[in-house]
Computed example of a mutant assay.
Amino acid sequence: YSHHLKQGGAYKCSASNIRWEVTRETHIEYKTTLWEDHLTHQQRNSWIIAGLLWEITANSEDITAIHLPHFIDYQALNDLDPPLIQIANFKDGSVSLEPASKVHPTRVVFENPKFSLLGVIICLLPCIRPIPVKGLVMVYHSQEAADVTLHVYIIPDDPAMQEAIKLKEKGSRHIMKPPVVRSMYFGHDYLLKSPCKQVEIKPKQGVEFCYVRSGQTINFYEVYSKNVNENITLWLHAMNSETCLWEAEVRPGDLSSHGDQTEADSQYDLINREHRRNLIKHINVMQPICSNLLDYNIITDEEKEAILSHPTASEKKR
Protein backbone atom coordinates (compact mmCIF):
# COMPACT_ATOMS: atom_id res chain seq x y z
CA TYR A 1 0.00 0.00 0.00
CA SER A 2 1.15 3.53 -0.72
CA HIS A 3 -0.59 6.79 0.21
CA HIS A 4 0.38 10.40 -0.31
CA LEU A 5 -1.65 12.44 2.19
CA LYS A 6 -1.83 16.05 1.05
CA GLN A 7 -2.71 17.70 4.34
CA GLY A 8 -3.09 17.10 8.05
CA GLY A 9 -6.12 15.18 9.28
CA ALA A 10 -7.50 11.69 9.92
CA TYR A 11 -7.41 9.09 7.14
CA LYS A 12 -8.55 5.50 6.70
CA CYS A 13 -7.36 2.94 4.14
CA SER A 14 -10.50 1.10 3.00
CA ALA A 15 -8.47 -1.91 1.82
CA SER A 16 -6.49 -2.55 5.03
CA ASN A 17 -8.66 -0.68 7.61
CA ILE A 18 -5.56 1.04 9.00
CA ARG A 19 -6.20 4.62 10.13
CA TRP A 20 -3.75 7.49 10.35
CA GLU A 21 -3.70 10.81 12.18
CA VAL A 22 -1.21 13.18 10.53
CA THR A 23 -0.16 16.77 11.18
CA ARG A 24 0.81 17.76 7.63
CA GLU A 25 1.38 16.48 4.11
CA THR A 26 3.25 13.18 4.20
CA HIS A 27 3.87 9.92 2.34
CA ILE A 28 3.23 6.47 3.82
CA GLU A 29 4.12 3.02 2.49
CA TYR A 30 3.25 -0.23 4.24
CA LYS A 31 2.73 -3.95 3.66
CA THR A 32 2.03 -7.08 5.66
CA THR A 33 4.76 -9.51 6.63
CA LEU A 34 4.89 -12.89 8.39
CA TRP A 35 4.86 -13.13 12.17
CA GLU A 36 6.73 -16.45 12.16
CA ASP A 37 9.77 -14.82 10.55
CA HIS A 38 10.25 -12.69 13.66
CA LEU A 39 8.91 -14.66 16.66
CA THR A 40 10.97 -16.75 19.04
CA HIS A 41 9.64 -20.01 20.48
CA GLN A 42 8.99 -18.29 23.82
CA GLN A 43 7.05 -15.47 22.17
CA ARG A 44 4.87 -17.96 20.27
CA ASN A 45 3.92 -19.58 23.57
CA SER A 46 3.39 -16.40 25.58
CA TRP A 47 1.58 -14.16 23.07
CA ILE A 48 -1.74 -14.30 21.27
CA ILE A 49 -1.43 -12.78 17.81
CA ALA A 50 -4.35 -10.37 17.54
CA GLY A 51 -3.83 -8.85 14.10
CA LEU A 52 -1.54 -8.60 11.09
CA LEU A 53 2.13 -7.66 11.31
CA TRP A 54 2.79 -4.46 9.34
CA GLU A 55 6.04 -3.22 7.81
CA ILE A 56 5.66 0.56 7.69
CA THR A 57 7.82 3.25 6.11
CA ALA A 58 6.88 6.81 7.06
CA ASN A 59 8.16 9.95 8.75
CA SER A 60 7.22 9.51 12.41
CA GLU A 61 7.31 13.28 12.98
CA ASP A 62 4.32 13.72 10.63
CA ILE A 63 2.12 11.08 12.30
CA THR A 64 0.55 11.49 15.73
CA ALA A 65 -1.27 8.13 15.84
CA ILE A 66 -1.84 4.93 13.91
CA HIS A 67 -4.93 2.70 14.36
CA LEU A 68 -4.15 -1.00 13.82
CA PRO A 69 -7.04 -3.47 13.20
CA HIS A 70 -7.38 -6.43 15.59
CA PHE A 71 -9.62 -9.51 15.90
CA ILE A 72 -10.02 -9.58 19.69
CA ASP A 73 -13.66 -10.23 20.52
CA TYR A 74 -15.40 -7.06 21.66
CA GLN A 75 -17.04 -8.95 24.56
CA ALA A 76 -13.57 -9.63 25.95
CA LEU A 77 -12.44 -6.02 26.02
CA ASN A 78 -14.36 -5.04 29.16
CA ASP A 79 -12.90 -7.97 31.12
CA LEU A 80 -9.39 -7.81 29.71
CA ASP A 81 -6.70 -5.91 31.60
CA PRO A 82 -5.74 -3.12 29.13
CA PRO A 83 -1.96 -3.48 29.72
CA LEU A 84 -2.17 -7.02 28.29
CA ILE A 85 -3.02 -5.56 24.85
CA GLN A 86 0.25 -4.30 23.44
CA ILE A 87 2.01 -3.32 20.24
CA ALA A 88 4.96 -5.52 19.30
CA ASN A 89 7.60 -3.27 17.73
CA PHE A 90 10.34 -5.18 15.88
CA LYS A 91 13.49 -3.27 14.95
CA ASP A 92 17.08 -4.29 14.18
CA GLY A 93 16.55 -7.89 15.28
CA SER A 94 15.00 -7.05 18.66
CA VAL A 95 11.46 -6.44 19.86
CA SER A 96 9.92 -4.06 22.36
CA LEU A 97 6.36 -4.13 23.69
CA GLU A 98 4.60 -0.77 23.63
CA PRO A 99 1.36 -0.06 25.52
CA ALA A 100 -1.75 0.59 23.46
CA SER A 101 -2.90 4.20 23.85
CA LYS A 102 -6.58 3.28 23.32
CA VAL A 103 -8.48 0.10 22.47
CA HIS A 104 -11.60 0.23 20.29
CA PRO A 105 -13.86 -2.70 19.30
CA THR A 106 -12.07 -3.17 15.95
CA ARG A 107 -8.75 -1.35 16.33
CA VAL A 108 -5.91 -0.43 18.68
CA VAL A 109 -4.53 3.13 18.77
CA PHE A 110 -0.76 3.63 18.99
CA GLU A 111 0.16 7.27 19.57
CA ASN A 112 3.47 8.87 18.56
CA PRO A 113 4.62 5.69 16.79
CA LYS A 114 8.17 4.86 15.72
CA PHE A 115 7.90 2.86 12.54
CA SER A 116 9.42 -0.50 11.69
CA LEU A 117 7.38 -3.69 12.13
CA LEU A 118 4.22 -3.24 14.20
CA GLY A 119 1.53 -5.72 15.26
CA VAL A 120 -1.11 -6.15 17.97
CA ILE A 121 -0.57 -8.94 20.51
CA ILE A 122 -1.99 -10.06 23.85
CA CYS A 123 0.44 -11.15 26.57
CA LEU A 124 -0.59 -14.48 28.07
CA LEU A 125 1.84 -14.88 30.96
CA PRO A 126 -0.15 -12.96 33.61
CA CYS A 127 -3.50 -13.97 32.11
CA ILE A 128 -5.44 -16.92 33.55
CA ARG A 129 -8.65 -17.02 31.53
CA PRO A 130 -8.74 -17.78 27.79
CA ILE A 131 -9.16 -14.75 25.54
CA PRO A 132 -12.21 -14.73 23.22
CA VAL A 133 -11.51 -13.72 19.63
CA LYS A 134 -13.78 -12.98 16.69
CA GLY A 135 -14.39 -16.08 14.59
CA LEU A 136 -15.28 -16.38 10.93
CA VAL A 137 -16.80 -19.17 8.82
CA MET A 138 -15.98 -19.52 5.12
CA VAL A 139 -17.93 -22.03 2.99
CA TYR A 140 -16.73 -23.26 -0.42
CA HIS A 141 -18.41 -25.57 -2.93
CA SER A 142 -15.82 -27.84 -4.55
CA GLN A 143 -16.52 -27.92 -8.29
CA GLU A 144 -14.41 -31.02 -8.92
CA ALA A 145 -15.69 -33.28 -6.12
CA ALA A 146 -18.64 -35.67 -6.44
CA ASP A 147 -22.27 -34.65 -5.91
CA VAL A 148 -22.39 -31.83 -3.31
CA THR A 149 -19.09 -31.38 -1.48
CA LEU A 150 -18.51 -28.35 0.72
CA HIS A 151 -15.34 -27.21 2.48
CA VAL A 152 -16.10 -25.30 5.69
CA TYR A 153 -13.30 -23.30 7.34
CA ILE A 154 -13.53 -21.95 10.89
CA ILE A 155 -10.85 -19.32 11.44
CA PRO A 156 -10.12 -16.11 13.35
CA ASP A 157 -11.23 -12.95 11.55
CA ASP A 158 -7.78 -12.46 10.05
CA PRO A 159 -7.39 -11.09 6.48
CA ALA A 160 -4.16 -13.05 5.88
CA MET A 161 -5.85 -16.37 6.62
CA GLN A 162 -8.84 -15.40 4.48
CA GLU A 163 -6.55 -14.69 1.53
CA ALA A 164 -4.71 -18.00 2.05
CA ILE A 165 -8.02 -19.88 1.92
CA LYS A 166 -9.14 -18.01 -1.21
CA LEU A 167 -5.89 -19.01 -2.90
CA LYS A 168 -6.22 -22.62 -1.74
CA GLU A 169 -9.84 -22.81 -2.96
CA LYS A 170 -9.15 -21.24 -6.34
CA GLY A 171 -11.62 -22.84 -8.74
CA SER A 172 -14.19 -23.48 -6.00
CA ARG A 173 -17.29 -21.40 -5.46
CA HIS A 174 -17.35 -19.20 -2.35
CA ILE A 175 -20.85 -19.51 -0.86
CA MET A 176 -21.71 -16.28 0.89
CA LYS A 177 -23.30 -16.96 4.28
CA PRO A 178 -23.35 -14.89 7.47
CA PRO A 179 -19.70 -15.34 8.41
CA VAL A 180 -19.44 -14.06 11.97
CA VAL A 181 -19.30 -16.53 14.83
CA ARG A 182 -19.88 -15.78 18.51
CA SER A 183 -16.85 -15.66 20.81
CA MET A 184 -14.32 -18.42 20.13
CA TYR A 185 -11.16 -19.47 21.93
CA PHE A 186 -7.77 -20.48 20.59
CA GLY A 187 -6.91 -24.06 21.53
CA HIS A 188 -10.56 -25.11 21.96
CA ASP A 189 -12.23 -27.73 19.74
CA TYR A 190 -15.38 -26.97 17.75
CA LEU A 191 -17.82 -29.36 16.09
CA LEU A 192 -19.79 -28.88 12.86
CA LYS A 193 -23.17 -30.66 12.83
CA SER A 194 -26.18 -31.09 10.57
CA PRO A 195 -29.71 -32.35 11.34
CA CYS A 196 -30.00 -33.58 7.72
CA LYS A 197 -29.78 -37.38 7.59
CA GLN A 198 -28.33 -37.48 4.07
CA VAL A 199 -25.41 -35.22 5.01
CA GLU A 200 -22.00 -36.63 5.96
CA ILE A 201 -19.48 -34.43 7.80
CA LYS A 202 -15.80 -35.28 8.26
CA PRO A 203 -13.96 -35.25 10.54
CA LYS A 204 -16.62 -36.36 13.01
CA GLN A 205 -14.56 -35.17 15.95
CA GLY A 206 -13.91 -31.52 16.74
CA VAL A 207 -11.41 -29.32 14.92
CA GLU A 208 -9.09 -27.10 16.95
CA PHE A 209 -9.58 -23.37 16.55
CA CYS A 210 -6.15 -21.81 16.11
CA TYR A 211 -4.12 -19.14 14.37
CA VAL A 212 -2.48 -20.84 11.38
CA ARG A 213 0.87 -19.44 10.36
CA SER A 214 2.14 -19.26 6.80
CA GLY A 215 3.05 -22.66 5.39
CA GLN A 216 0.90 -24.58 7.88
CA THR A 217 -2.16 -26.57 6.82
CA ILE A 218 -5.52 -24.90 7.43
CA ASN A 219 -7.95 -27.55 8.66
CA PHE A 220 -11.50 -27.65 7.35
CA TYR A 221 -14.67 -29.73 7.50
CA GLU A 222 -15.78 -31.67 4.43
CA VAL A 223 -19.57 -31.74 4.07
CA TYR A 224 -20.98 -34.25 1.57
CA SER A 225 -24.49 -34.95 0.27
CA LYS A 226 -25.75 -37.06 -2.64
CA ASN A 227 -28.94 -35.02 -2.87
CA VAL A 228 -28.28 -31.86 -4.87
CA ASN A 229 -31.91 -30.70 -4.62
CA GLU A 230 -32.28 -30.33 -0.85
CA ASN A 231 -31.12 -27.71 1.60
CA ILE A 232 -28.14 -28.45 3.85
CA THR A 233 -28.44 -27.06 7.38
CA LEU A 234 -25.18 -26.53 9.28
CA TRP A 235 -24.64 -25.78 12.97
CA LEU A 236 -21.40 -24.98 14.78
CA HIS A 237 -20.98 -25.89 18.46
CA ALA A 238 -18.16 -25.90 20.96
CA MET A 239 -17.26 -29.44 22.02
CA ASN A 240 -19.46 -30.70 24.87
CA SER A 241 -21.83 -27.78 24.45
CA GLU A 242 -25.27 -27.51 22.85
CA THR A 243 -25.03 -23.74 22.38
CA CYS A 244 -25.14 -22.93 18.67
CA LEU A 245 -22.42 -20.44 17.73
CA TRP A 246 -23.24 -20.26 14.01
CA GLU A 247 -26.00 -21.54 11.74
CA ALA A 248 -26.44 -21.50 7.97
CA GLU A 249 -28.63 -23.00 5.27
CA VAL A 250 -26.97 -24.00 1.99
CA ARG A 251 -29.64 -24.09 -0.71
CA PRO A 252 -29.55 -25.64 -4.21
CA GLY A 253 -29.42 -22.14 -5.69
CA ASP A 254 -26.17 -21.50 -3.80
CA LEU A 255 -24.53 -24.28 -5.82
CA SER A 256 -25.04 -22.78 -9.29
CA SER A 257 -22.27 -22.82 -11.87
CA HIS A 258 -18.99 -21.26 -10.80
CA GLY A 259 -18.42 -20.23 -14.40
CA ASP A 260 -21.64 -18.18 -14.40
CA GLN A 261 -20.54 -16.44 -11.24
CA THR A 262 -17.12 -15.65 -12.65
CA GLU A 263 -18.64 -14.18 -15.82
CA ALA A 264 -21.11 -12.10 -13.80
CA ASP A 265 -18.34 -10.88 -11.52
CA SER A 266 -16.24 -9.92 -14.55
CA GLN A 267 -19.15 -7.98 -16.07
CA TYR A 268 -19.75 -6.23 -12.75
CA ASP A 269 -16.07 -5.31 -12.42
CA LEU A 270 -16.05 -3.96 -15.98
CA ILE A 271 -19.11 -1.79 -15.31
CA ASN A 272 -17.70 -0.68 -11.98
CA ARG A 273 -14.39 0.38 -13.55
CA GLU A 274 -16.25 2.30 -16.26
CA HIS A 275 -18.32 4.17 -13.65
CA ARG A 276 -15.15 5.06 -11.75
CA ARG A 277 -13.54 6.44 -14.91
CA ASN A 278 -16.64 8.54 -15.56
CA LEU A 279 -16.59 9.71 -11.95
CA ILE A 280 -13.03 10.97 -12.30
CA LYS A 281 -13.84 12.70 -15.61
CA HIS A 282 -17.13 14.42 -14.87
CA ILE A 283 -17.59 15.29 -11.19
CA ASN A 284 -17.25 19.02 -10.53
CA VAL A 285 -17.66 19.27 -6.74
CA MET A 286 -14.90 16.94 -5.66
CA GLN A 287 -14.00 17.07 -1.98
CA PRO A 288 -17.35 16.41 -0.22
CA ILE A 289 -18.42 13.73 -2.69
CA CYS A 290 -15.08 11.94 -2.46
CA SER A 291 -15.21 11.99 1.33
CA ASN A 292 -18.65 10.36 1.32
CA LEU A 293 -17.61 7.74 -1.23
CA LEU A 294 -14.53 6.93 0.86
CA ASP A 295 -16.62 6.59 4.04
CA TYR A 296 -18.82 4.01 2.30
CA ASN A 297 -15.77 2.13 0.91
CA ILE A 298 -16.89 2.80 -2.69
CA ILE A 299 -13.50 4.26 -3.56
CA THR A 300 -10.07 3.86 -1.97
CA ASP A 301 -7.70 6.53 -0.69
CA GLU A 302 -5.64 6.14 -3.88
CA GLU A 303 -8.70 6.68 -6.07
CA LYS A 304 -9.70 9.71 -4.01
CA GLU A 305 -6.24 11.18 -4.56
CA ALA A 306 -6.48 10.45 -8.30
CA ILE A 307 -9.84 12.22 -8.52
CA LEU A 308 -8.69 15.26 -6.55
CA SER A 309 -5.53 15.56 -8.64
CA HIS A 310 -7.60 16.37 -11.75
CA PRO A 311 -8.88 19.93 -12.14
CA THR A 312 -12.66 20.12 -12.43
CA ALA A 313 -14.43 21.63 -15.43
CA SER A 314 -15.24 24.76 -13.44
CA GLU A 315 -11.61 25.08 -12.34
CA LYS A 316 -10.42 24.83 -15.95
CA LYS A 317 -12.70 27.74 -16.91
CA ARG A 318 -11.27 30.08 -14.28
Rank of each mutant, 00 (worst) to 15 (best):
Y1A: 13
H3I: 08
H4Y: 14
L5P: 01
L5D: 06
G9S: 11
C13W: 06
C13R: 03
A15P: 01
W20Q: 05
T23I: 13
T26Q: 00
H27K: 14
H27W: 11
E29I: 08
E29W: 09
K31F: 04
K31W: 07
T32K: 02
T33W: 00
W35D: 05
H38M: 10
L39C: 02
L39A: 07
Q42C: 04
R44A: 12
I49P: 02
A50W: 03
G51C: 09
E55L: 00
E61W: 06
I66M: 06
H67K: 07
P69M: 01
F71S: 00
F71Y: 13
Q75C: 02
N78M: 12
N78P: 03
I85L: 06
Q86F: 05
F90S: 05
D92P: 01
V95F: 04
E98I: 15
P99G: 09
P99L: 06
A100Y: 09
A100V: 02
S101Y: 12
S101V: 07
P105E: 03
T106Y: 00
T106A: 09
V109S: 02
N112S: 12
P113K: 03
P113A: 04
F115Q: 01
C123N: 09
L124F: 05
L125T: 08
P126L: 05
P130W: 00
V133R: 02
V133P: 05
K134Y: 01
G135F: 01
L136T: 11
L136E: 10
V139M: 01
S142Y: 02
E144T: 13
A146M: 14
A146T: 13
A146P: 02
V148P: 09
V148S: 14
V148F: 04
T149R: 07
H151G: 04
Y153M: 04
P159A: 05
Q162V: 11
E163S: 09
K170N: 15
G171R: 08
R173T: 07
R173M: 02
K177S: 13
P178N: 12
P179Q: 11
V180E: 14
R182Q: 12
Y185F: 14
D189H: 11
L191F: 10
L191G: 00
S194W: 02
S194E: 04
K197T: 14
Q198K: 07
K202M: 15
P203D: 11
K204Y: 00
K204E: 12
Q205L: 10
Y211W: 14
V212Y: 10
G215Q: 05
G215N: 04
G215V: 04
F220K: 10
F220T: 05
V223W: 00
Y224G: 00
N227Q: 11
L236H: 06
M239F: 14
C244D: 06
W246I: 00
A248C: 15
A248R: 03
A248V: 07
A248Y: 08
P252C: 03
D254S: 12
D254Y: 07
G259W: 08
D265N: 15
D265P: 02
D265E: 15
S266Q: 10
Q267V: 08
Y268K: 13
D269W: 12
I271A: 15
I271R: 11
R277W: 01
L279H: 07
K281C: 08
N284R: 13
N284G: 14
V285L: 14
M286Y: 05
Q287D: 14
I289E: 01
C290A: 11
D295T: 13
D295C: 13
I299D: 03
D301E: 15
E302Q: 15
E302D: 10
E303I: 00
E305L: 08
H310C: 12
K316H: 11
K316M: 14
